[in-house]
């Protein structure tokens, strides 16, 4: 069984080094013979078994014994894993070609495993939506930084999304590093199925009192607690957070009760969909996308390029 893996590995290595070609041929012969229910003529499987056991003998005799005695079973396990991972790779590639992410159309909270550094295009996830994709604007949403900053970074985030929470740390690092050179806008993109637009409502109500960023940070900090509560308990939890943010509670409660920001939140969500957003967090940096909680260097690369472009006047 190990010959199947050997065939794949040696075949790839043979592309780069001629010394692996005889081994690849040997592995092919072995696989072919086994596929036709004959004994491997070259004993490649036995040789690999002995080589692996021999190497382990000096390091861990017990493990060497385990591997030697159960080599066939282990080989089967590795072959199954190998085939499964190969199938998933092909499936991921198919999804990427069709949907722009590796998880497929059903994925609502996941993120493409491909580094967004190279993903300077809209996701095709909502290709079924009518009309052209439209780049989002800052609209009238909460923002930090000067309006005339050279770089505008818009985040579509969800307070219940663990990935959005994870990204906040990097966002802070970005803002700290670029200061006045960047304008950061936060737009609501509550994931519908979860039914938690109350948190987004709370942040909009806090914005009325000029305390948006305070509650924004607290909502992410308390995300896990919020996730565990429902109904009245949840309402109480939101009020506690509002209190911690230093809000006038009467004003806040009235705002929440009126649900007057429902349209605003829905507009953000629709704008996100039009821009091709299919998960959170999704960032638009001067129109270039970063999907998912990517490392600082991913943001730096795009921001630096945009700053350079602005400085060169292009």
């Amino acid at each position: 069984m190990i010959c199947i893996i050997a065939l794949a590995v040696f075949s790839i290595l043979a592309v780069f080094s001629a010394s692996y070609r005889p081994l690849a041929a040997e592995a092919f012969d072995c696989v072919f013979r086994k596929a036709t229910f004959r004994k491997c003529r070259t004993n490649l499987d036995q040789r690999l078994k002995s080589q692996i056991t021999g190497k382990l003998l000096t390091k861990s005799p017990g493990l060497a014994r385990f591997v030697y005695k159960r080599f066939e079973i282990l080989s089967w396990i590795f072959v199954i894993l190998f085939i499964a991972s190969l199938a998933y790779t092909v499936y991921g590639g198919y999804n990427y070609a069709l949907y722009g992410n590796c998880y497929g159309p059903e994925d609502n909270g996941g993120f493409c495993i491909y580094n967004a550094l190279e993903g300077e295009q809209f996701s095709k996830i909502h290709a079924e939506l009518e009309g052209e994709t439209v780049l989002p604007t800052a609209d009238d949403d909460p923002a930090m930084g000067p309006d005339d900053a050279k770089v505008e970074m818009i985040e579509f985030g969800c307070y219940m999304c663990p990935f959005s929470r994870e990204a906040q740390e990097v966002v802070k690092q970005v803002l700290e590093k670029y200061g006045d050179r960047i304008k950061f806008v936060y737009r609501d993109f509550p994931i519908e199925q979860s039914g938690h637009s109350d948190l987004h409502m709370a942040s909009n109500c806090a914005n009325e009192q000029g305390k948006f960023w305070e509650i924004h940070d607290l909502l992410f900090t308390e995300q896990e607690v919020c996730a565990q509560t429902t109904g009245e308990e949840r309402e109480k939890q939101v009020q506690d957070i509002a209190e911690q943010a230093g809000l006038d509670m009467a004003e806040f409660n009235a705002c929440m009760k009126s649900e007057k920001y429902e349209d605003e939140i829905d507009k953000d969500f629709q704008d996100g969909l039009k821009a091709g957003v299919y998960g959170t967090p999704t960032f638009f940096i001067n129109g270039r996308t970063i999907i998912g909680p990517k490392p600082l260097r991913a943001f730096e690369k795009i921001i630096d390029e945009e700053l350079e472009k602005a400085e060169n006047g292009s």
């Binding site: 004993n43 036995q46 040789r47 002995s50 080589q51 056991t53 021999g54 190497k55 003998l57 000096t58």
Partner: peptide, 14 residues
């Protein structure tokens, strides 16, 4: 144990 296996193991190990 097969003879070749023993030889390969001795070689690999030491």
């Amino acid at each position: 144990l097969e003879t070749h296996n023993v030889a390969v193991m001795l070689d690999e190990a030491a």
